[in-house]
Each structure stands twice: as C-alpha cells, then as structure tokens.
Computed example of a mutant assay.
Amino acid sequence: MAVSISAVVLLGIVVFVLIRGGSVRILPALACTGFGFFLASSGAAPLITDAIGTVTALISSI
C-alpha cells in the first residue's frame, strides 16, 4: 500500500509540473486521469499492479 500511495503522489507531482510548465493542457490531463480510473476497474488492473510491483521490487533490490 505504501508503494501505491507514493506512486500516486509522484505521478501527481509530475502531472502538476507538466500542466504548470505548459507541456500538457488541463483537458488532456483530465482525459488521461479518467482513463486511468476506468483502467483501474478493468481486467488489466491486476496485471498492471503486478508489473509495477515487480519493477519496484527490482529497483529496491539494487
């Protein structure tokens, strides 16, 4: 759980910086956020969660 909260905070900061920097506009950012919420409730969510867990375990073992 701690890893997912940290990932959410990190990705939120990245999106905020991109919006403030003018690289991403508000509506595309909101569309991507909506897509993420719908993707999280789909059948692909466990696969994505496992992949992220594998990557974070690999990084923490270095």
Rank of each mutant, 00 (worst) to 15 (best):
M1I: 11
M1F: 10
A2V: 15
A2Y: 14
V3H: 07
V3P: 03
V3Y: 09
V3L: 07
I5S: 14
S6C: 14
V9N: 01
L10T: 12
L11H: 09
L11Y: 08
L11N: 10
G12F: 00
I13H: 06
I13T: 05
F16T: 09
F16M: 10
F16D: 14
V17S: 01
V17H: 05
L18N: 03
L18G: 02
G21N: 01
G21Q: 00
G22K: 01
G22D: 01
V24T: 07
V24N: 02
R25N: 08
I26P: 00
L27P: 05
L27Y: 13
L27C: 11
P28I: 03
P28G: 00
P28M: 03
A29C: 00
L30P: 04
L30Y: 06
L30G: 02
L30W: 04
L30Q: 04
A31D: 08
C32S: 08
T33R: 03
G34D: 04
G34Q: 10
F35R: 10
F35S: 07
G36W: 03
F37H: 06
F37M: 07
F38M: 13
F38Y: 10
L39W: 06
A40H: 15
A40P: 09
A40M: 11
S41W: 05
S42M: 01
S42Q: 01
S42A: 09
A44Q: 15
A44W: 15
A44P: 09
A44N: 06
A44I: 12
L47E: 15
I48Y: 10
T49Q: 09
D50G: 13
D50Q: 14
D50H: 13
A51D: 04
A51Q: 14
I52D: 04
G53I: 00
T54C: 11
T54S: 14
T54D: 13
T54P: 11
V55G: 06
T56R: 04
T56G: 03
T56M: 06
T56S: 11
A57K: 11
A57G: 05
A57E: 12
A57L: 08
S60F: 07
S60C: 07
S60G: 06
S61Q: 04
